[in-house]
Structures are given as structure tokens and as C-alpha cells.
């Protein structure tokens, strides 16, 4: 297996290169970019991030826990006020809302850490270079040794400022 790196200058050119590569059947792609780009995201077409599931689970857990906590504590130390029910659901909505946001936010960040960092940390990032946080976009393609020529050709046509084989 070989790894070919193409360095591009704009998100549009990078998205174009990704589309060309995918069209030619190369799906093992990694793109490094200095800023987020919808164009590149659409070109890669990897669907929405799983972070959204974390947010939903966090929000539902937070609001449920908040109500359960307040109701349980109200019955654990009952205060008799004019014969009213011990648990006062409308008043508990405030803390229910706050805990919904708190758990939703914390789990969103947990989702980011899991999917953006921990699950991808073992991948080979030897092609990364500091200019990818400056003004360069990197497009790395994993391919068979006999496909290197074809990949170089596609990347060159897509407007890469530089194309090189990073590992063979």
C-alpha cells in the first residue's frame, strides 16, 4: 500500500480533488484543512456526525434525572404545606431545563472527544505538516502501489500545488 499526498490551496480545489478521486474509485481518503468547509464535507459525503446522538441522549438523561432527583428528595424529606402534594412539578421544570442543557452540553463535548480524537488517534498521520493549520489543504490517498501514477495524475489535474508519495 502507498500513501500519496496532494497539497491544495483552496477548499473548492480540495473538494474538486476529493470528488475526482472518489469518482475514480479511491475511497480511502483523508483531508487536512485549516478551517471547516461545507464543500469538502459534501464532497466526502460521510453523513452527519454521530455527535448528535450524544446530545440527544445527554438532554434526555439530564431532564429525566433532574425530575427524578427533585421528586425523590421531596418525598425523602416531606414538607407538609397546606395539604399540597410534596412534589411540585411546575417548580421543578426550571432545574429540569438546566440539567437538560448541562447533560446535553457535556455529552456533546464527550461525543466530540470520542469521535474527533480518541477513535481517530491511532490512524497514521505521518503525512500531516504544520502548513495544514496555515493556508494549505492536504489530501491523502491510500492506494495500491500500482495505482500511485493514476492518483498523482488526478491530484495534478485537480490543481495540487505539490504531489508526493509519503509512504510506499
Amino acid at each position: 500500500m502507498a500513501q500519496v499526498l496532494g497539497i491544495l490551496r483552496t477548499p473548492s480545489a480540495t473538494a474538486g480533488a476529493v470528488r475526482e478521486l472518489r469518482g475514480a474509485g479511491f475511497e480511502k481518503l483523508e483531508v487536512y484543512s485549516p478551517c471547516p468547509s461545507h464543500e469538502i464535507e459534501h464532497a466526502l459525503d460521510r453523513g452527519p456526525s454521530r455527535v448528535r446522538i450524544y446530545t440527544l441522549v445527554g438532554c434526555l438523561t439530564g431532564v429525566t434525572l433532574a425530575y427524578l432527583m427533585q421528586i425523590w428528595m421531596a418525598y425523602d424529606w416531606p414538607l407538609v404545606i397546606g395539604g399540597k402534594p410534596f412534589a411540585s412539578i411546575p417548580a421543578y421544570t426550571i432545574i429540569g431545563f438546566e440539567m437538560n442543557i448541562l447533560f446535553g452540553g457535556v455529552l456533546t463535548v464527550a461525543g466530540l472527544l470520542i469521535h474527533g480524537f480518541f477513535l481517530t488517534s491511532r490512524r497514521d498521520h505521518s503525512a500531516y505538516q504544520p502548513s495544514f493549520s496555515g493556508d494549505d489543504f492536504g489530501c491523502v490517498v491510500d492506494c495500491h502501489d500500482d495505482q500511485v501514477g493514476r492518483v498523482r495524475e488526478i491530484l495534478g489535474e485537480a490543481g495540487c500545488a505539490e504531489v508526493r508519495v509519503v509512504s510506499a
Binding site: L29, L44, P48, S49, V51, L112, G116, H125
Partner: peptide, 22 residues
């Protein structure tokens, strides 16, 4: 270990959107 990979940006953009919504 931030490198600006597509996976990182995808998770990052979604997180920023959700945190904004919250």
C-alpha cells in the same frame, strides 16, 4: 492531537452547532 482532519472538523462543526443550540 488536533490535525484538522475531515473527521475532526465534522465532529467539531456538529458540536459547535449543538452547543450553540443548547
Amino acid at each position: 492531537g488536533w490535525r484538522g482532519t475531515s473527521e475532526q472538523w465534522r465532529a467539531h462543526s456538529r458540536s459547535v452547532l449543538h452547543l450553540s443550540g443548547l
